[in-house]
Write a protein that binds this DNA or RNA. Sequence first.
DNA 1: AAAGGATGGTGCATTTTTTGTACCGCAACG
DNA 2: CGTTGCGGTACAAAAAATGCACCATCCTTT
Lengths: 303, 303
Amino acid sequence: MRHLKTFRLIEAVARAGSMRKAAGDMNITASALVRRINRFEKEFGAEIFERLPGGVRLNPAGELVLHHYRATRSDLSRVQSQVADLAGERRGHVSIGCSQALIPYFLPREIARYRGDHPGVTFSVNVRDRAQAEHELASYSSDLALVFEPVYLVDFEVVHVIPQTVNVVMRADHPLASKAELRLRDCLDTPHVAPSAKYGVRHLLDFAARRSTRAVSPLVETESFELIRHYVTYENVIGFQIPIGLRDPGDGSIVFRPISERDLPPGNLILGQMRGRTLPVASARFAMQLATALKDYDAAIRR
Amino acid sequence: MRHLKTFRLIEAVARAGSMRKAAGDMNITASALVRRINRFEKEFGAEIFERLPGGVRLNPAGELVLHHYRATRSDLSRVQSQVADLAGERRGHVSIGCSQALIPYFLPREIARYRGDHPGVTFSVNVRDRAQAEHELASYSSDLALVFEPVYLVDFEVVHVIPQTVNVVMRADHPLASKAELRLRDCLDTPHVAPSAKYGVRHLLDFAARRSTRAVSPLVETESFELIRHYVTYENVIGFQIPIGLRDPGDGSIVFRPISERDLPPGNLILGQMRGRTLPVASARFAMQLATALKDYDAAIRR
DNA sequence: AAAGGATGGTGCATTTTTTGTACCGCAACG
DNA sequence: CGTTGCGGTACAAAAAATGCACCATCCTTT
């Protein structure tokens, strides 16, 4: 779409922080770019950039314009995919920002299942912490977010939610493995590995620990749940993860046990989108599939 | 905004039903227009118009594109007015589609009051029946609708609602003028003037009459409530209108009496906008003012 | 303090894009 | 069976966007 070229340039300038750099990025001359920007500002009726010594920066008006542009672009591609859909082509693209727990089992299975029905649809899947995931929805960088314990920004709209109890992960020969359900104090008294503060699991643990005037003091703190899952097989300590990110290998190499709800209320695993946005058909349909899959999963682990 | 020129052309073609006519309307050559449309369809990836012998017509994909364009244009002008607002200029434009009852007293007063605070803001006010008013919201032709007994299309979002009882309008020397409240049967037994079927007042009357196996049989049927209001001063018959469109002149030339709620439930006077749309600042602010004005008005006529 | 380098901005020639003119093939209509 | 109006196209003219060389300004470095 040629019409939107100026907006792409504006976006490039905002990103680069300098017209000359942006010109280089977009393979045009600085002069051409400067004139486009200036002409746009004149037509628009207001300046979009602050001119600073050493570069430019978006002013508040520019932020609004950029947001408008992103909304427009997203809506146009929605229209395109909708048209392709009614032409029977069933193509499109779905982009998801999600928590790490969804990466190993849940999302791959669901994506594969969806692509089984609609081979023309492509996906981008990116791991994001809960704040990032919501921010990317607001900037139209993602269509969907599937995150544990989101921070609930204003533009976040819940599509589906299931509760998830934090589980302890450990080797089968760990002393705590014999119990069916663990108390929080047992976990805190035992050497443990934990995710860093920006993750929902840690947030719940910290909150519950504070309530009993205790503290989470991990011997290894990491941003990677994959590391946690593997670390407990190398040193006989415990880790934490939510059930949807876990699967019993069956060989007893690792087991997982829920933490009692008396100590730690279940957190919410939430599928969300940007408030008020009409998603492209493919994303909307995939969101529906995810919602029912989450519902079925939740029903399954409760029986 | 030059970028949106192609869309304006598409709109013109859709309206004219023919490329050559549209080219004339837009003061360009048919060939230029044809190429723009064709190039757009190629870039967009689908045809937008059906080519018929004798002209063209939007296909479903084209309807989607046109809708996208209108949404984009509306959002851009919203951004512009928002920018103007944060620059302290307080200018903008508000367009309203409303029922006739709002024309003589309520809207002029509210608009004048608003313009007292914000002289830079301009208005368009158009009388529309309830179906039209809602349709114009959906096509971004109006920002707000203020209608009696709307038909409630899917995209209609209620901002504020107050009940309004249908009143009988007549001269002070009419036999029915002596009663404080009228029964429906008295009205139907008396020669009466009524609005045509597409208006909410008539809809309520018809509905109530059917319930008592009667019928509204007006001796004059009109689309103009102004005519009704004046007609009853020339021939001693009764007419109908809702209170917000009436004001006691004080000289006894006309009086109005409510129809008993036992016979005719109050209808709803509703302020609405398009669902999910972010209005320009001026329109949003005026909508808030209207909402409180309606609330105050309703409280006043109840005491 | 002077020099150097990077920034946004501008005049002018050049290239790319868009438009206008003239024309074609086609279908409906009288 | 020609006429009329339709969408579509080749080619030249007009218009717009771009690239190049250059300027004034500011900050950093020497």
